[in-house]
Design a protein around this nucleic acid. Structure first.
Lengths: 346, 346
DNA sequence: ACAAAATTTGGTAGCGATAACATTAAATGA
DNA sequence: TCATTTAATGTTATCGCTACCAAATTTTGT
């Protein structure tokens, strides 16, 4: 076993022939260091395999290096996926993720968030949908002057940095994919209206139909809530129609899975008689058969970026931030699996 | 906003009229403090809402207050559930969870674990199945003299504390439940043999049949791997039999979900013609229709206990530990939902 | 070419807790 | 009763790093 102690900043400083302050500055991305010394330091850091002691750093800098992650429903695979990715990328920056569930009782939740801020002194917060659009919460955070990054928010886009993918475009392309396969009777299950992405995905679907001059009856559009149950209800209605759709674009994978279940129940072959698509590409997409054609959300990237934004402290003084920089739209990818096929020939 | 600074240990000491060391001792459960002073301190802590500064504590005590969580497959709901619960209970102890995935390439993984131990200096590790039975890993941890707690391990039960539920009993009771509903043609899908619980669940099933003097043909027993896909394969075989089972006990929910999918495909009504049961009670159990009858694993408790064991430092010197104390068997609960019913009358 | 301003570096104190040792008070024993 | 052990409390130094300010160096303007 290697018993040699971990290198301290002093060791690095000595090896590089500079003061420990210079090392500290290099490591905290301080710009005021000449390139020559910076290189020396980097070299020494590498040679000694130096990793700063987080505890000491926190104590001295009075920063917590904690990032809070606020979510609403822990059971969605979206949350756990985000979490896992986030935790991973946290390790590289030395930050730590503190996870907190917000519940319907906003008053109570506000108290717990306040506690998180005061007691744990988080450096910043990440807000997942639908928490990211909670007006009261946003107001509280603003007032407390806390840095926060929102994921796929819907409202008040200019009050904080945010990260999303182009949900409108994704839905548009997915719908066009179905159209290219000959489908014209395409239904849609809208997501929970408490999340902005629902509207965007709905609009993308609508516009794809319109730009291809396809009309669908209003019965082809149902309201869901991103849950399996709501998908079940919607699918049952839609698949009980005399003139059924031959394809259904669901606003997420869980609802798509529900459509699949109803189709099975009703003896409708997927994808031969009915194509189904979702969004997310989480666990469900492949634990359902046939596997779902879906949109892959760049969750890994989202998590990384969110943490990076908070870690950088770039937006710690929001009053000075340029609103243009708030917007981070990441790329998505359509994953074709087994739940989609050419439209059935009459 | 409340601008008052957080109380420090000095403030508490002053208010209680003692030295800060006495406060420190009270807080770290040191016995060598008189009851009278202890009470004074507690009172002051409460009054000032004092929470020790974790960074300072870590720096001074040279303990990391980090706990590593090692898992194999991030996509199982089991992992994310454990994670979420663990993170929650960590907050109360001031510890933090560092999550790391172990992959098939054991050599590479060992390096990353070593890194975790040396660089992050975790106070202990939690090993989820099947990682908890990796011989090489266990040997390494032993050699490095790292505290670790294993969840549902299979082998070398006397080398470390471990936590599990009575998988044998759960499977036994579940099978008897089906028998009590009149089923005699009961099949089983075994879990991945790289996890000990698979064997236990299998044995529980077998013994329940035996104690009720029920024989089943070997075709009623299939080998799976805890994955949806493997469940699909197993279920297809079993449900293609001329003399099909009327009930299938799957070793986890994901495989049970697969059985359900195959049943739907084959136009077999669940639960009218076929009852299905799983184990875990994770997300899948209720995002599938009909909802699964299953065994609820006490994951919350498992996570809490695991963290508690490491935090307590009780087993930090394993050579002195009493092996009897290693064993922690928690209670399970059978959750009856819609996927089970009386056996069909011929 | 030289003073003034801007940039880069270094020295020192202190963040808030605990370890290790020193001290005081209480308990024990002859 | 007084020396001796034991238990309870206090004092000091230190953990590894960064904030803050001072010193040294470079750049700039005239």
């Amino acid at each position: 076993m290697n018993v040699s102690k971990r290198a301290r900043i002093k060791d690095v400083a000595e090896r590089a022939g500079v003061s420990s302050m210079t090392v500290s500055r290099v490591l905290s991305q301080d710009t005021k260091v000449s390139n020559s010394k910076k290189e020396l330091v980097m070299e020494a850091v590498k040679a000694l395999n130096y990793r700063p002691n987080v505890a000491a750093r926190r104590l001295a800098s009075n920063k917590s290096f904690f990032i809070g992650l606020l979510y609403f429903d822990s059971d969605t695979s979206y949350v756990s996926k985000f979490l896992l990715r986030g935790l991973k990328s946290c390790r590289t920056t030395g930050h730590h993720l503190i996870v907190d569930e917000i519940d319907d009782d906003i008053e109570k939740s506000l108290a717990s968030v306040t506690d998180l801020i005061e007691v744990t002194q988080v450096d910043g917060l990440i807000l997942l949908p639908p928490v990211c659009d909670n007006v009261k919460l946003l107001a509280t955070l603003k007032e407390a002057n806390i840095t926060f990054v929102r994921i796929s928010p819907d409202t008040q886009l200019n009050i904080s940095p945010y990260i999303c993918m182009d949900d409108y475009q994704a839905s548009f392309e997915m719908t066009e994919l179905l159209i290219s396969k000959g489908h014209t009777k395409i239904g849609h299950i809208i997501g929970n209206t408490n999340q902005g992405v629902s509207r965007l995905r709905y609009q993308g679907y609508l516009d794809a139909l319109r730009s291809n001059k396809i009309n669908v009856p209003p019965e082809y559009i149902e309201q869901g809530y991103f849950t399996y149950e709501s998908g079940l209800v919607a699918a049952k209605k839609m698949l009980a129609l005399d003139d059924k759709p031959t394809a259904i674009v669901a606003a997420n994978d869980e609802m798509a899975a529900a459509v699949l279940a109803v189709a099975n129940l009703n003896r409708i072959a997927v994808p031969a008689e009915l194509s189904i698509t979702g969004v997310d590409d989480g666990n469900v997409a492949v634990t359902v058969s046939p596997n779902l054609t879906t949109v892959r959300q760049p969750i890994q990237q989202m998590a990384e970026l969110a943490i990076d934004i908070i870690a950088s402290g770039k937006f710690s003084d929001l009053s000075k931030a340029n609103n243009r920089e708030f917007r981070n739209v990441l790329d998505f990818k359509i994953i074709e699996r087994e739940s989609t096929a050419e439209a059935p020939t009459k």
